[in-house]
Design a protein around this nucleic acid. Structure first.
Lengths: 342, 342
DNA sequence: ACGCTTCGACGAAGCGCTTCGACGAAGCTC
DNA sequence: GAGCTTCGTCGAAGCGCTTCGTCGAAGCGT
């Protein structure tokens, strides 16, 4: 492998001149630069990443602390990861994977101290996340995906659950729906303070109230069978129901099953809208589910950008940046049926 | 950040002694080692990764060239990635993501020349894959997931499609099924030489022949709607059909829809078996689909192990290592119904 | 007691780059 | 034309480690 010294010799200049030609940190006469570039080409020179990092004290590496993939149907995490990796590359950074759970803060600290990463992206943070604490202690720039309890002074990007739910309700109300139910994640997750579940629940109540409507919400275990039971329960407690919003992919399959079982047509009798879904979930059902899918790729890009902001000018970015989910029309939404008893 | 020099001073030894205590490359007297470790602990010392890599000429980094996530329902890629990342970490390596398509061989070469990775894992290789060519030219150790046309001398790990299909058929035959259909990926993918589709098709014919049965196979676009059409077509051309094997997740949803539409009960009238699926797909249907899911995690671990084999002793591992899919019982398999006309 | 090996530690030379200070040549001012 | 700045380049000092050669001290056999 050719080194910068080989290039310098070939081009008849000093090593430092080659370095400056490479980085542009000092002016080089055009014909000298030409000569250097020609030599680099001839030798197939690529600067050694390790030497460069050591000398410049910048590794050009971003670490991504990421959660279990693949629970649920989720392609969202995959989208996020790929977008983050691509954006990093565009900006001349590499993305390394640190598969650490919440409990492995010590490992995070050690790796951070090894100077392998200039900054860290932390996915699926929890309310009290030790990993964030050690990163702050180690003075390593980071961006969270999600939020800790203290969110004011910590840079993060996340799904805008408020806006997503608000838009979902608005859309349904616009179609004439007045009796709208919401199927959330499981009660355990809500009790555990799982951010999305808690925030969406609050947002749903608020959005319904904003339209002068009665909120009807249920927690639901992540399973089609329970989703089916919950749907039955919802129909029993509110027979005038014409729309169901779900934030629970597996439960959604149960919603479909129960409605079909009862001979209720989608969307003629009941409209169904899946929010914060993975991409591609809509086509798994018949009729295709209308969804508001999580902006995984956009979040990935944004997270990298916010991190690089910190790395370049040292300034802290906006502490929080939220992106709403995107409506992906399917065939499961329609105007509310005329209420049988209203 | 403490350096090795700080530790040496603290412990009253030379820098090289600390280094040897760290690596174990030369014997150190126990009490000296004690003292050094105590100093390291006190200073919170972690060796600088860049300096270490530069001096030792080993980056302790594995690169993963990986495909688009999230087409299809797939959690398999996610499983693979996480398992590979975890295994790497266990072995003291980092996993970096190189989001490169088949066409970006030049980028792969450049990055490889930068010495950032000691070895490379290449996912979703195609029959003639330039990325493999440049890696060989650059003498960078690699392991493929999948196969190129020339597979004899190239280390790879992959799903054992032969064994998977063979076991699937065997299982169904054991349940008394004689008229078994196979739904493959789309014709375009087969024509394009997409390995899994081609190999599974061949394996199906062979397995059926091995049991003295008539193979009945169909290509099918990746969509529930087309899956439904193909199912109708299969039932028309072989009314005695009692089992359907699918290697096409989206189509499987269509299979269910068509069977239910015709009042054919699963598994009483027709058994359905999804092979090479992502984990968790089974529970999306009712009754839960029996699957043979792709061993993503196992492949991830294995790929890393095979790569590290090369890195440590320089010997080439077994060129190919295949792992069959694992049967995950659902509720969609049952004994063949008595043939109405046999 | 002598030379021999073995053990444990040290010093120094890199690894391939970045970056700082310096310096000759050329261009400017008055 | 003396003194100034500006431009383009060079040399050398690291960055924080690994690793090779070396060397004193202790342990061995005879």
């Amino acid at each position: 492998m050719a080194t910068i010294a080989d290039v310098a010799r070939e081009a008849g200049v000093s090593v430092s001149t080659v370095s400056y030609a490479l980085s542009g940190a000092r002016p080089i006469r055009p014909e000298t630069r030409e000569r250097i570039q020609e030599s680099m080409r001839r030798l197939g020179f690529q600067p050694n990443a390790m030497a460069r990092s050591l000398a410049s004290r910048r590794s050009k590496v971003i670490a991504l602390i990421y959660p279990q993939f693949g629970d649920g149907v989720g392609g969202t995490v995959g989208e996020f990861v790929r977008a983050a990796a691509e954006r990093s590359r565009e900006q001349g950074y590499q993305l390394v994977l640190w598969p650490f759970e919440v409990g492995q803060a010590k490992e995070v600290r050690n790796l951070a101290r090894q100077g392998m990463a200039d900054g860290v992206l932390v996915m699926e943070v929890v309310l009290d996340d030790q990993r964030i604490d050690v990163l702050e202690a180690a003075q390593v720039p980071y961006v969270m995906i999600g939020r800790t309890r203290d969110v004011q002074h910590r840079p993060s990007v996340d799904i805008d659950f408020d806006a997503t739910v608000e838009r979902a309700i608005e859309h349904l109300v616009g179609l004439g729906h007045r009796h709208i139910a919401f199927i959330n994640h499981s009660q355990e997750r809500i009790d555990a303070g799982y951010g999305p579940a808690v925030r969406a629940a609050v947002a749903f109540d608020r959005a319904m109230a904003g339209h002068g409507l009665e909120p009807l919400a249920r927690a639901c275990a992540e399973s089609p069978v329970v989703g089916r039971e919950v749907t039955a329960d919802l129909l029993a407690s509110e027979p005038r129901l014409t729309a169901i919003v779900t934030m629970n992919e597996l439960a959604t399959f149960g919603v479909y099953a129960e409605l079909q079982h009862r001979g209720l047509a989608i969307p003629h009798d009941v409209s169904v809208l899946g929010i914060v879904t993975s991409p591609g979930v809509g086509v798994l059902t018949y009729p295709p589910l209308s969804t508001m899918h999580a902006p995984g790729a956009e979040l990935g890009r944004l997270a990298v950008d916010r991190l690089l902001d910190q790395l370049s000018d040292g300034r802290h970015p906006l502490p929080n940046q939220l992106i709403p989910c995107v409506l992906e029309p399917g065939m499961s939404l329609g105007p509310a049926r005329t209420e049988p008893d209203a």
